[in-house]
Computed example of a mutant assay.
Amino acid sequence: MLAAPVPALAAPASNAADPAPADPAQTDRGSHGRTPRDLRELAHKTGVRFGSAVDVAALRAERDYRTVLNREFTHVTAENAMKWESVEPQRGVFTWADADAVVENARRNGQKVRGHTLVWHNQLPAWLTTGVENGTISDTELRKILRDHVTTQVSRYRGKIRAWDVVNEVVDDDGAMRQTIWLTHLGPGYIADVFRWARKADPHVKLYINDYNLEWNTAKIDTTLAIVKDLQAKRVPIDGIGFQGHLGIQYDYPGDWANVMRRFTDLGLEAAVTEMDVRMILPVTPEKLATQADYYGRALSDCLSVPACREFTVWGFTDRHSWVPGWFDGEGAACLFDESLAPKPAYRRLLATSRP
């Protein structure tokens, strides 16, 4: 998921005054026969973890943001703080403070963590891309750099991360393998390599392949299925498939999404909705909000209809910090809460959704 890099931040503010919810895995909040009061209770009722991407600057600076994040969600993903340019902006110089802040806040609030992402073609540090382009980093050295990056990051958070997006967006929209520095200089075998390196660094973490438009793009679906089957045939450890779920109400809802999930889970994978949002062409109207709520509800229903769908994560929960306006001109209002952190119809629709 491409989003604007997080700027340098001050030291983490203390959350000592924030209420710390109980661990949902250990507490029965008793939603029997009624609509759950919040997403944590819905998570307990359905058995599906509800997550959000986390803006680290907001986590530190905005108490109301922290309060909603920690009240509502049982799972979190660092929006940018674990991407390569964030954790190693200079070669050999690691900056873990932002990623650590997300992991520590999750620990205090009984939340699991999705690591995002180990290998991607975007948001790479300039020292790496420049070195590859000018030839000062050879293909042999690049492979070692990649192995060291995966090993270092996964090892640092061993036992603290539930699942990693190991490779992100490796298939292009036409179904071809995406032309990246990894494919160009290391060949397609880099995918198997990074999964093996990640498993060695943390034997118990779930390892995912993650992509956008996988909900409906037939060419991308078929190629990703082929990658998974090839990895499994080679006994490469892969545990899950991540559907980003970036939707827009100006497009049809991907009505076959549940069946697509099953094509992957039938291979023994668990599935997750990893980056859900539903944008609209502005301005906001009640009719658009109703359609947005319908899309969110249908997406959750699709996940709940597939037993191996284990997580439903939104890519930011408030329009105050959504990535959408910066990337889609004239579009926005994609999240469950508005800029004032008031819940939208989509939020209430999720609470009213139950397993089929």
Score class of each variant (00 low, 15 high):
residue 9 L to D: 02
residue 10 A to C: 07
residue 11 A to V: 08
residue 12 P to L: 04
residue 13 A to Q: 15
residue 19 P to H: 08
residue 21 P to A: 08
residue 22 A to E: 11
residue 22 A to F: 09
residue 24 P to I: 14
residue 26 Q to W: 11
residue 27 T to H: 14
residue 29 R to F: 14
residue 33 G to Q: 09
residue 48 V to F: 08
residue 50 F to M: 12
residue 50 F to A: 02
residue 56 V to H: 01
residue 56 V to S: 04
residue 66 R to M: 01
residue 69 L to G: 07
residue 71 R to N: 07
residue 72 E to Y: 10
residue 73 F to E: 00
residue 74 T to L: 01
residue 75 H to C: 12
residue 79 E to M: 08
residue 82 M to K: 00
residue 82 M to G: 01
residue 83 K to Q: 08
residue 84 W to F: 13
residue 86 S to F: 10
residue 88 E to Q: 07
residue 90 Q to P: 03
residue 90 Q to T: 10
residue 91 R to Y: 06
residue 95 T to N: 09
residue 95 T to S: 10
residue 97 A to D: 15
residue 99 A to T: 03
residue 100 D to S: 11
residue 101 A to V: 07
residue 112 K to L: 12
residue 120 W to Y: 09
residue 120 W to N: 00
residue 122 N to F: 05
residue 123 Q to F: 09
residue 123 Q to N: 10
residue 125 P to D: 07
residue 126 A to K: 13
residue 129 T to A: 14
residue 135 G to Q: 03
residue 139 D to Q: 10
residue 144 K to V: 15
residue 149 H to R: 02
residue 156 R to T: 14
residue 158 R to V: 03
residue 161 I to L: 02
residue 163 A to T: 02
residue 164 W to H: 00
residue 164 W to M: 02
residue 164 W to Y: 03
residue 164 W to F: 01
residue 165 D to T: 00
residue 166 V to A: 05
residue 168 N to M: 03
residue 170 V to H: 03
residue 172 D to K: 06
residue 174 D to T: 04
residue 176 A to Q: 12
residue 176 A to F: 05
residue 177 M to E: 04
residue 185 H to C: 06
residue 185 H to L: 03
residue 187 G to A: 06
residue 189 G to W: 06
residue 189 G to E: 12
residue 189 G to L: 13
residue 193 D to S: 10
residue 196 R to E: 15
residue 198 A to E: 06
residue 202 D to L: 15
residue 202 D to I: 15
residue 206 K to L: 15
residue 211 D to A: 09
residue 217 N to K: 14
residue 217 N to Q: 13
residue 220 K to A: 00
residue 222 D to L: 13
residue 223 T to L: 13
residue 224 T to K: 06
residue 226 A to Q: 14
residue 226 A to F: 09
residue 227 I to G: 10
residue 228 V to N: 11
residue 237 P to T: 12
residue 238 I to K: 00
residue 239 D to M: 13
residue 242 G to N: 05
residue 242 G to P: 07
residue 242 G to C: 10
residue 244 Q to G: 07
residue 249 I to V: 13
residue 249 I to S: 08
residue 253 Y to E: 02
residue 255 G to F: 12
residue 256 D to S: 15
residue 257 W to F: 15
residue 258 A to K: 02
residue 259 N to L: 14
residue 262 R to F: 15
residue 268 G to W: 07
residue 269 L to H: 05
residue 270 E to G: 11
residue 270 E to K: 09
residue 275 E to S: 00
residue 276 M to D: 00
residue 277 D to M: 14
residue 281 I to C: 04
residue 283 P to T: 08
residue 285 T to G: 05
residue 287 E to V: 11
residue 287 E to H: 13
residue 290 A to L: 05
residue 292 Q to D: 02
residue 293 A to Q: 06
residue 294 D to M: 12
residue 294 D to Y: 11
residue 296 Y to M: 02
residue 299 A to H: 07
residue 301 S to V: 01
residue 301 S to N: 07
residue 304 L to D: 04
residue 304 L to I: 06
residue 311 E to A: 06
residue 314 V to G: 01
residue 316 G to V: 08
residue 316 G to Y: 11
residue 319 D to A: 13
residue 321 H to N: 13
residue 323 W to N: 01
residue 325 P to R: 01
residue 330 G to D: 04
residue 331 E to V: 08
residue 332 G to H: 03
residue 334 A to W: 01
residue 334 A to F: 02
residue 338 D to T: 12
residue 342 A to G: 09
residue 342 A to P: 05
residue 348 R to C: 06
